[in-house]
Computed example of a mutant assay.
Amino acid sequence: MSELLQPCNVIMLFRDVELLCEAIKGGDGRLENYKNLVTLDIGLAPVVKRPPFQLKSPTAYFSSTKTQEELQAPFRKSFRDMPRVTIGGTVDESLAQSARQDFARSKFEDVDSIIALWTAKKDEGTQLFKRGDDGCLKPWSKVRDEINEAFKSEAWARLVKQGGPSFVARVAELFYTTNLNIVAIGLKWLEEGDRDVLPGVRDAYGHLKSSTNEGYWGIAHSWKPSPAQETKSLFRYAKILRLSGESELVPFASATIDMLAYHNPDDATILEEKRKIKAWKRSVGPIDDSAFNAMMSGLNT
């Protein structure tokens, strides 16, 4: 990845700056410790001192504090945790210093603000889902990815110290329920025939299950899924098994849905899924369920 560290110069119009910011942020996924390794030197200035056919120099325009703030805005909005950034050119030094402080500041700075932001994003996805808008995946994925990013960052220890077990519990619930929602939209697409989403559905379900394990978040916390959330989780697990189409999973799907139907005899959605799993079981015919029986035997000993 050493080629990513070679210096380069980019001159561009302001209208394209947001695209540049997105490209720069993309380095997170390509180079470990990217933000601490990369140096950005941003210069704000006219490309030429006096454009052709223009009698007056644009210096006065660029000297405006309002203009300088507008030019810096995309960078200040895009970058956090990047201490190796300078900003110069036609810019007031106090504004440049303020921008540098913003760049170096962690976006995971205050426990209450990030919880509020993640909750709002999750709710945005939920409202889109209720309206039948498949765009719900984008805000849900952002919540999941940012929680993962915070958890893996140097800021996590500070956030835990600041917010304590109650903060971790709130993060744990958001992470669990957001992944549960991602599984739901994935299952919808899977049932509609999009087989490409199956790995993502399995991945999201694996994350939500792992996140309830003791010590997952590095600290004891009090949050556990409610019975209703556990029921949703098991129901979606049964659907994943059925929609995977793998015949060896029939016993697991059947056992899971039978248990849910036993405890929720009047739930029409569960009963409908039980009917579908039974139909799948009939279509598969006799199967070798020795692996399933061995697992159940081990659980009962």
Rank of each mutant, 00 (worst) to 15 (best):
E3M: 08
L5N: 03
I11P: 00
L19R: 15
I24N: 00
D28S: 01
D28G: 00
K35L: 06
L37D: 11
G43M: 09
L44M: 09
L44C: 06
P46N: 14
V48A: 04
V48P: 08
K49N: 14
R50W: 15
F53N: 12
P58S: 06
L71A: 01
Q72F: 05
F79T: 00
D81A: 04
V85S: 05
T90R: 05
Q101N: 10
F103T: 03
E109T: 04
L117W: 10
A120S: 05
D123I: 06
E124M: 02
L128K: 14
D133P: 07
K142I: 12
D145K: 00
N148S: 09
N148V: 06
F151K: 13
K152W: 12
K161D: 10
A169R: 07
Y176K: 13
T178Y: 01
L190M: 04
G200T: 11
R202D: 02
Y205F: 15
G206V: 00
E214M: 04
G218N: 07
I219N: 12
A220I: 08
W223E: 01
W223A: 05
P227Q: 04
A228Y: 01
Q229F: 05
Y237D: 03
A238C: 08
K239C: 07
R242K: 11
R242E: 14
S244C: 07
G245A: 02
L249N: 14
V250L: 10
P251I: 14
S254R: 09
M259P: 03
L260N: 08
Y262D: 02
N264T: 06
A268S: 09
T269G: 05
L271V: 00
E272Y: 03
K276Y: 11
K278H: 08
